[in-house]
Nucleic acid binder design. Structure first.
Lengths: 358, 358
DNA sequence: AAACACATTGTGTCCGCACACATTTTTTAT
DNA sequence: ATAAAAAATGTGTGCGGACACAATGTGTTT
């Protein structure tokens, strides 16, 4: 049994293909009676359009904008960028163009400026990492009014229903970190939670990671065995950063673990290296080169992979699926919480990430 | 600038589209001179065929056979089967049909019988899990003679170059297990390697996993701190299975870890449950329901995910990519060594993570 | 009843490619 | 030199869908 075509439906309904087409696209100019008959037949025959034929016939062009951090300020953004570009390349032959608007991830003003640029381009869809909560809200409203669908990634924001959110369950990643620490030291331990280099008030996901970790111990009735110390650190002033760490580790000699909620675990590793500290284990996020360096040296025990490349890729992919192929897409797409260590690292880098999962 | 079409190349080369087409498909009947000219232009203009138009235009039907284990004998095979079926469904509209041939994974004769069935169907391609090394070799030869391309998955066999191999690096997964054990007990420990329910002589991957584990400790100069005990166990006779375990744990009271190289970690967990043993940590393979039960209870610490669903999916996908879309495909596709624990489990089983492709 | 507006339905072409078939050019045989 | 065979090249159609446009049909106005 072959696939049902518009022709087949037209034949069964004793109308022409054009009429069926009008019904399919709800373009009107079809009598109620015929419309219902056709609709019923479509239902019965379980018609599914041939997406390739559809894409082939249409010459509509789609223009998407990706609003992401600029890798020149933070190398983390190399991966999302690469993922976006890969998706853009694949979608090019379907008439999709993607413009990158890259902001300074440390500067809200820059974000606003680039978001304005993005708006001015009047794209058919937007993919963005809404790093600055306060600043992004007015844009959400504007895009909604203009009916420009947008997909969020990297940072979850519940409000203002986007077309889709791609990212990780930050809370759950904190739980994973809890497990790794607990498994590494079942008798109990002293843990430093370090939020490095991101404004915590504007970054809900950092708090979620922290909560996930804390709740792991509470839920498992281990909270009296594990002491948790929290620190917000900033690298703008490196001397001060070191000073703060000095003070923390001097006053807490019993510390055995360090959980870094941002991609800056390597900074802690570097500090340990300089101070000849090697008894404190580090769990962090993101497979950026500096982190990998210390992962391979054994200074970092585990990294939780947020698959930034995949996030960028699937972000564009969602836009394409929805707008070009008019497929149903899921409103939220959690990527797996990959536990990465020196031994399985190879399979998480490169663009193998795109193929190896669905 | 739009995509280059055959027409564009034809115009530049001052020939007709038909001639370009002949060159593209190497169908001959083109003079050397013209062929080279066209080839050069194709190169220059960086032509990439429109795959949708290609798939649309051809009415050729493809018939693939998937030769896998029957889930009725071992629930492990549910996942590969599901992955294959998902890929088959997606590929259906390109004229692809997939027939499943499922053998009893504990019975080489059954494998041979089903492999013969598969051959008789004279398919355009075969995806198979070559579980029985000796028995599968003659089929490889036959298929090669018949020019039926085949893709291997699940079990790696180096010889008889298949179109592609999909699976895990078994050796490296042993290394991961080593890391998990070392991290959990840095001072050294006593480890049981359990090969359960598979004939080790016919399953090279079990040995590779073992080697990976052993070498982890050797490479890190820890081999004098970690004592490794090896056991080959069989579940045909459960009483004997228990007896063997009894004897092992009685004579090795210092055991702290158990590394199960097959998907039968839950059998060890069950045994521990019955014997009220809870100080020995288990690392195993495969997210099958029984394993997940004990993972959630905490009896199993980690499972290494072989992503069997993905293996099935990508196996069919490779055949489709190669034969239907005539894409270049990689000869080997290692899937990541996912470290799965209770806390990140959800993201490896939900099929909401089955990303849509376009 | 003719003229017209408007609602409804049908027809044809294009999208890019593959392949069958038609046509032209070149080579070979007589 | 000419016919026949072979090689090289060109042309046309269909795949399934989208959409512009053409062609009906229906009802209203004068």
């Amino acid at each position: 049994m072959k696939n049902i075509r518009i022709k087949d439906i037209a034949a069964k309904a004793k109308v022409s293909a054009g009429t069926v087409d009008r019904v399919l696209h709800d373009r009107g100019n079809v009598s109620e009676k015929v419309k219902e008959r056709i609709l019923k037949i479509i239902e019965e025959m379980n018609y599914e359009p041939n997406l390739m034929a559809r894409a082939l016939g249409t010459k509509k062009e789609y223009h998407f904008v990706a609003l992401i951090g600029d890798p020149r300020y933070d190398a983390y953004w190399l991966d999302p960028k690469a993922g976006i570009q890969k998706a853009a390349k694949e979608a090019r032959q379907y008439g999709v163009k993607v413009t990158l608007c890259m902001f300074n991830p440390y500067d809200a003003t820059s974000f606003v400026k680039k978001a304005e640029e993005a708006s001015k381009l009047n794209p058919d869809g937007i993919l963005l990492a809404p790093m600055f909560y306060r600043e992004v809200l007015p844009f959400f409203e504007a895009w909604k009014k203009q009916e420009i669908p947008f997909v969020l990634f990297n940072t979850q924001i519940a409000e203002f229903d986007p077309l889709s959110y791609i990212g990780q369950d930050s809370y759950q990643s904190g739980q994973v970190a809890g497990k790794l620490i607990h498994y590494g030291q079942p008798q109990g331990s002293s843990i430093l939670i370090a939020h490095i280099d991101e404004e915590i008030s504007n970054s809900a996901h950092l708090t979620k990671k922290e909560q996930g970790l804390r709740n792991y111990f509470i839920q498992n009735n281990l909270d009296h065995q594990y002491e948790i110390i929290k620190a917000e650190l900033n690298l703008r002033n490196y001397a001060m950063f070191v000073e703060q760490l000095d003070s923390i580790f001097e006053s807490n000699p019993q510390l055995q673990f360090c959980f870094v909620t941002t991609s800056k675990a390597f900074e802690i590793a570097k500090y340990f290296e300089q101070k000849f500290i090697n008894h404190i284990r580090i769990v962090g996020y993101d497979l950026i080169p500096q982190n990998l360096h210390y992962l391979n040296k054994g200074a970092i025990s585990f990294l939780i992979n947020q698959n930034p490349l995949g996030q960028g890729y699937w972000g564009i992919n969602q836009l394409v699926s929805h707008l070009v192929f008019k497929k149903e897409i899921s409103a939220i797409k959690f990527l797996p919480l990959d536990i990465v260590t020196k031994e399985n690292l190879n399979y998480y880098i490169e663009d193998s990430m795109l193929y190896n999962r669905f």
